[in-house]
Amino acid sequence: MAAHRPLERRAVAEVMTLDLLTISESESVLMAWELMCQAGVHHLPVADDEGGFIGVVDAQTLTASWNASGPEQARRPVTALLPPGPQGAVPPTATVAEAARAMVKAGRDYVPVTDDRNVLVGLLTARDLVSGLAGVHRDVAPRSGGMPSLYRIEPVFPAGLPGHPDAGRMGPD
């Protein structure tokens, strides 16, 4: 029945992205970039050390603030890229039209979706809106609760490079 209602009247929970890749506040800008590239995503919710929602870093902000002047810039905490002020979240019961207005007001192509305890439950993006408008339904397994999945990717250095555990050992010929 929900699919027959116009998109703007549907609840955000019906079209939002549920399975989110997140990053910890203690991670670097470089790690955020790597996660976005490897996963092919444009938005990374940032979690505090207890798993609580802090904000969202998007690819546009990351690329606009990228500074290749030295490694210390790449090692800045990802929280340095969070937009100032509140994130303008909406509840999952908000209509798509209300969420779209929040996106326009914030000047962003996403809006965080939080529950009544400010726990992130999803993210509504411009892509979700276009998919909903096109009638494309993406099947996603329901989440078990709490902060969305936090995947951790560790960099792997080729043997022989500084920083690799086997850097001082001779390899086979």
Rank of each mutant, 00 (worst) to 15 (best):
A3H: 15
H4L: 14
R5H: 13
R5G: 05
E8W: 07
A11D: 04
E14R: 08
V15Q: 04
V15H: 05
M16T: 00
D19R: 15
D19L: 12
D19K: 14
L20E: 08
T22G: 06
T22N: 06
S24C: 10
E25C: 12
V29R: 00
M31C: 01
M36A: 00
Q38H: 13
A39G: 12
A39V: 05
A39E: 14
G40C: 12
V41I: 15
H42G: 14
H43E: 04
H43P: 03
L44Q: 00
V46H: 03
E50R: 15
F53A: 09
D58C: 10
D58W: 02
A59W: 01
T61D: 10
T63K: 07
T63F: 10
T63G: 00
S65Q: 13
S65G: 01
N67W: 01
A68I: 03
S69C: 01
S69D: 15
G70M: 10
G70Q: 11
E72T: 08
Q73M: 13
R75D: 02
P77I: 02
A80R: 05
L81Q: 00
L82H: 05
L82Q: 04
P83D: 06
P84Y: 01
P86L: 11
Q87N: 11
Q87P: 12
G88Y: 11
V90L: 08
P91N: 11
T93P: 01
T93V: 06
A94H: 06
T95P: 02
A97C: 04
A97L: 13
E98P: 03
A100Y: 02
A102F: 02
A102V: 02
M103N: 05
V104G: 02
G107P: 01
G107L: 03
R108Y: 02
D109K: 14
D109L: 11
D109F: 05
Y110Q: 11
V111Y: 09
V111L: 10
P112E: 08
T114G: 05
T114Q: 08
D115H: 04
D116W: 09
R117P: 03
R117N: 12
N118F: 10
V119Q: 14
L120K: 09
L120C: 11
L120T: 07
L120V: 14
L120R: 07
V121S: 00
G122H: 11
G122C: 12
T125E: 11
A126T: 14
D128S: 11
D128H: 11
L129D: 08
L129G: 07
V130Q: 06
G132R: 14
L133F: 12
L133K: 00
R138K: 13
A141R: 15
P142K: 02
R143H: 07
S144R: 15
G146W: 10
P148A: 12
P148F: 10
S149R: 15
S149F: 08
L150M: 13
P158N: 05
P162S: 08
G163T: 02
G163N: 00
H164C: 06
H164G: 06
H164R: 02
H164Y: 04
P165I: 10
D166T: 06
G171K: 09
D173Y: 05
